[in-house]
Design a protein around this nucleic acid. Structure first.
Length: 271
DNA sequence: CCCGACGCCTGAGCGC
DNA sequence: TGCGCTCAGGCGTCGG
C-alpha cells in the first residue's frame, strides 16, 4: 500500500493509539525484515513513553522520551494493524501500550524495515541524508526540480520515482501526477520547460493532498482489526485503468512496462 | 555519476 | 479443485 499518503494516514492512525503512552511490550517475532531488526529494539523501547510520531518521505517515526526514534518503512505490503484478534505468521513486530492497546506490524513480503536510533542522529542517518525534499513542502518547487533534473536524459517518470529528487512519490501517484500535468512519462526529464515543471509540482501536491484527505476520512476503517485502509482506487485517473477513457475525454489509458514496472498514461493528452 | 535491469519475498487472481 | 503463471504501491545493488 505504501506511498506517502498511506504512510501519513498510518502515522495519524498510530498517533491516536500511541501518543503519550508508555510501551509495556515491544516484541519482534522474527530476526529481520529487509534487514535485521535492531538487536536492542525490545530493550530500548519497552517502558519508554511515546512523545510523538512523525513521517519523513515514506518512513514513519515513533519518538520516545529516551531520546530514541523507531523508524519504520512499510515496503510493498506492510501495514500496522490495530488491536488484531490474532497474531499470525506475518505479524513481525507486536507493541502494547499501558492502555491495553495492541499494534502489530504485518508485512507478508517483508520488504519493509524497522530501525532505531538516537533522535538527534536522524538527520545524519544515511537513508535520510539521501532524500530529496518533501513534496508537500515549499522546498519542492519548479526551480528545485529544474536544478535536480538539469541535463538528465532519463524519462521523467523514473526521475520522480527517485527519492533523491523528491521524496515520497511511488508508482501510483507518479502516474496520476503526470496525467494531471499532461506530461508523457517517457519525456526526457531535463527537457521539461519551467511552466511544465510548475504544473507537475502542483499536480503532485494536488494528488497527494487529495489522497491524504481521502485516507483521513477512512481512519475509522484503519482502526478495524483487519487493518484495511480502504484505498482511494476509485479516484484514480489512470492507474490500473488500462483501456478505460482518460478523464481528458480524448484518449484511452495505455499501459506500458519498463523494467517490470507498469506505467499508465494517456497518449492523447500527455506529451 | 548516470542509467536500466534485477533480486528480494509472499499472496492474490486468472486461465486452463 | 488444483496448478502454474503473472502481477503487486519499494528500494538497494550491480553492471555497462
Amino acid at each position: 500500500m505504501p506511498e506517502l499518503p498511506e504512510v501519513e494516514t498510518t502515522v495519524r492512525g498510530l498517533e491516536s493509539v500511541l501518543a503519550g503512552r508508555v510501551l509495556t511490550r515491544v516484541e519482534p517475532r522474527r530476526a529481520d525484515l529487509r534487514r535485521a531488526f535492531p538487536h536492542d529494539l525490545r530493550q530500548r523501547m519497552t517502558g519508554a513513553r511515546v512523545t510523538g510520531l512523525g513521517r519523513r518521505a515514506k518512513y514513519g517515526l515513533v519518538h520516545t522520551d529516551r531520546g530514541d526514534t523507531m523508524v519504520f518503512h512499510l515496503g510493498m505490503s506492510g501495514r500496522w494493524r490495530v488491536d488484531p484478534e490474532e497474531i499470525g505468521t506475518h505479524d513481525h513486530l507486536v507493541v502494547e501500550t499501558d492502555e491495553g492497546r495492541r499494534l502489530s506490524l504485518m508485512d507478508p513480503r517483508r520488504f519493509g524495515s524497522v530501525d532505531l536510533m538516537a533522535t538527534e542522529a536522524l538527520p545524519d542517518w544515511a537513508p535520510f541524508k539521501a532524500l530529496g525534499p518533501e513534496p508537500l513542502s515549499a522546498d519542492f518547487n519548479a526551480a528545485q526540480l529544474g536544478d535536480a533534473l538539469k541535463g538528465r536524459i532519463a524519462p521523467i517518470k523514473a526521475m520522480l520515482l527517485d527519492q533523491r529528487i523528491v521524496a515520497g512519490l511511488g508508482n501510483i501517484y507518479v502516474c496520476e501526477a503526470l496525467n494531471i500535468a499532461r506530461i508523457a512519462p517517457t519525456r526526457e526529464a531535463g527537457r521539461l520547460t519551467g511552466p511544465k515543471r510548475t504544473l507537475l509540482v502542483e499536480a503532485a501536491r494536488q494528488v497527494l493532498t487529495e489522497a491524504i484527505a481521502a485516507g483521513g476520512s477512512t481512519l475509522r476503517d484503519y482502526a478495524r482489526p483487519d487493518g484495511e485502509l480502504g484505498y482511494f482506487s476509485k479516484q484514480f485517473r489512470v492507474y490500473g485503468r488500462e483501456g478505460e477513457p482518460c478523464p481528458c475525454g480524448k484518449g484511452v489509458v495505455t499501459r506500458r512496462v519498463d523494467s517490470g514496472r507498469s506505467t499508465f498514461y494517456c497518449r492523447a493528452c500527455q506529451r
